[in-house]
């Protein structure tokens, strides 16, 4: 049996892959807002550290999403590992923490 005949007509893996894509786009927007916020007061060492940390959180999110999207190539993908879910959530929380820190 080939992968094409095995493929689910509801396109669940594709829909899940696109959901990851949408989520990385949202994360990118938030990361760009974070960089804009950090550089607002000019390019200082503290601002550069903030930019680097935001970029790190964004890259972490991208890595989880990329690995998960590769898994979606399978006809019957395994369920998401809790570690991936937790990393994605923690990168989101990290961006919020930087936003809160930059308020002061």
């Amino acid at each position: 049996m080939t992968a094409t005949t095995d493929r689910d007509p509801g396109l669940q893996p594709e829909r899940t892959r696109l959901a990851w894509r949408r989520t990385t786009l949202s994360a990118t927007v938030v990361a760009l807002l974070a960089v804009r916020q950090a550089l607002h007061g000019g390019v200082t060492p503290a601002a550069l550290v903030a930019v680097a940390l935001s970029a790190l959180a964004w890259l972490g999110f991208l890595l989880v999403a990329h690995r998960r999207m590769l898994r979606m190539e399978a006809a019957r993908p395994e369920s998401l590992a809790p570690r991936g879910a937790l990393t994605a959530a923690l990168c989101t929380v990290a961006l919020a923490a930087f936003a809160a820190a930059m308020l002061f």
């Binding site: 949408r22 989520t23 949202s26 994360a27 927007v29 938030v30 807002l33 974070a34 804009r36 916020q37 994605a88 959530a89 989101t92 961006l95 919020a96 936003a99 809160a100």
Partner: peptide, 13 residues
């Protein structure tokens, strides 16, 4: 997660 990101983006905005 997207809802969370939207709320955080709102906070930045």
């Amino acid at each position: 997660i997207r809802t969370a990101l939207a709320l955080i983006g709102g906070g930045f905005a």
